[in-house]
């Protein structure tokens, strides 16, 4: 088959090897960065409130690189991109709604008598 891209059907978009390798080295760099910030952060006493979002930001940058270039999203139909990204909306709803509800049984838990398990089991 020909390497000339004009011979390819319109739905066929081979990504240049240069870009793929660039993305790969970018991902490796970000992996090293996240391990390094984690190790340095704990050594320097970086507060977890800062370390955790940092790790997530780096992970999301990596996810962007994989999605956009390895998964060809950059060139994909916008409907496919929309469909996939909508899953993130549902995930955030799922997590968000559950988090709102997490205190719901707190009174029951506080009333739970740890030294009197027999009573608890009877009441159940």
């Amino acid at each position: 088959m020909s390497d000339h891209h004009e011979d390819l059907p319109p739905f066929c978009h081979p990504v240049s090897t240069k870009l793929l390798f660039g993305v790969f080295f970018g991902l490796i760099g970000l992996t090293i960065l996240t391990v390094a910030t984690s190790a340095l952060g704990s050594a320097l006493g970086m507060p977890p409130a800062f370390a955790f979002p940092l790790a997530m930001v780096i992970a999301t940058m990596k996810a962007f690189l994989v999605c956009a270039f390895f998964m060809h999203m950059w060139w994909d139909k916008s409907f496919n991109v929309l469909a996939f990204l909508s899953s993130l909306l549902f995930v955030s709803l799922f997590i968000g709604m559950t988090m709102i509800d997490t205190g719901e049984y707190q009174p029951t838990i506080e009333a739970f008598d740890i030294n009197n398990l027999a009573n608890v089991e009877v009441s159940e």
Partner: peptide
């Protein structure tokens, strides 16, 4: 864990190269 991350990222690279090869009929 980091080692496994790199192994998996490398497999993603070879997968993307594989897709490219298939797109070119190689």
């Amino acid at each position: 864990g980091g080692l496994n991350t790199i192994v998996l990222l490398f497999s993603s690279l070879t997968m993307a190269l594989g897709v490219r090869a298939a797109q070119l009929g190689r």
